[in-house]
Design a protein around this nucleic acid. Sequence first.
DNA 1: CGCTTGCTTGGAGTGCACTCCAAGGTTCTA
DNA 2: TAGAACCTTGGAGTGCACTCCAAGCAAGCG
Lengths: 148, 148
Amino acid sequence: MESVSARTDTCASAPKAHPRPEGQDRYTISEVVAFSGLTAHTLRWYERIGLMPHVDRSHTGQRRFSNRDLDWLAFVGKLRLTGMPVADMVRYAELLREGDHTFAERQELLEATRRDVRTRIAELQGTLAVLDHKIEFYGGARAAPERA
Amino acid sequence: MESVSARTDTCASAPKAHPRPEGQDRYTISEVVAFSGLTAHTLRWYERIGLMPHVDRSHTGQRRFSNRDLDWLAFVGKLRLTGMPVADMVRYAELLREGDHTFAERQELLEATRRDVRTRIAELQGTLAVLDHKIEFYGGARAAPERA
DNA sequence: CGCTTGCTTGGAGTGCACTCCAAGGTTCTA
DNA sequence: TAGAACCTTGGAGTGCACTCCAAGCAAGCG
């Protein structure tokens, strides 16, 4: 995802290069829409509720997003997939803004999230087993009594 | 997480014995609440929107749920975990009520759902990788410049 | 310069999945 | 046979996560 990858060659998830290199990264909202898949409405709303660190502005007040902002949005997107409530993500964003002394709390929050994700994966695998079972039934039998 | 393993003696998910044997399975709504974890409101709402096959009634009109209904609710619960919209589940319930000639469509619907679940699991595993990465960073470094 | 397209705001509206309410009838226990 | 606890209904309300609107300023082009 980000620079820290230099910890080794980890960073298994492809870093997904930014559309423009550092230094020229001043994206308009519509560019971010194209890149992130979110709507402009949603991007503005994220900022309003504190889910985005305050975005830079042009001299006339229009938003100019940075590569950093794009990275953050990608991370938020991942969290969103887990079903985490937006309020919790805002909480994490606040902790980040508050600085170093929230380090431990952030770590705890990430670990709790990881536990949730693992639980969710397990639940989905349980569901997958049920689906496999029913589909197998559909493949084999033809119209059986069970409320399939 | 693991469960799927037992592909041999299938029916891996414990059949989860019914609270009462066939023949005495006439549960009040509050018994179903205790067993399913859903609220009475939700159970009535499910019936109203057609997500429950019409539930049997006592001679005075109170609901009496059967083991069959419990099984159906358990399945709906699994589908709910996948994030499937209620409307889609209602569609499946309708197909069931319509009888044998909807067999193929039901099968298709289940298979599409399975594809969705697999996609969702893959997404969550991607998220898990990101979380692992960040947590590792938190464990190793102490307050670094990244917008972790 | 004028035109089109894009961006700004606060506030209101939408869709989903519940969740609750009021007013009354039912069932169980003492 | 009384009282508590449970059940019924249609319809209204809630919380979440967007989603859209109107009115106006900004930016790029021939």
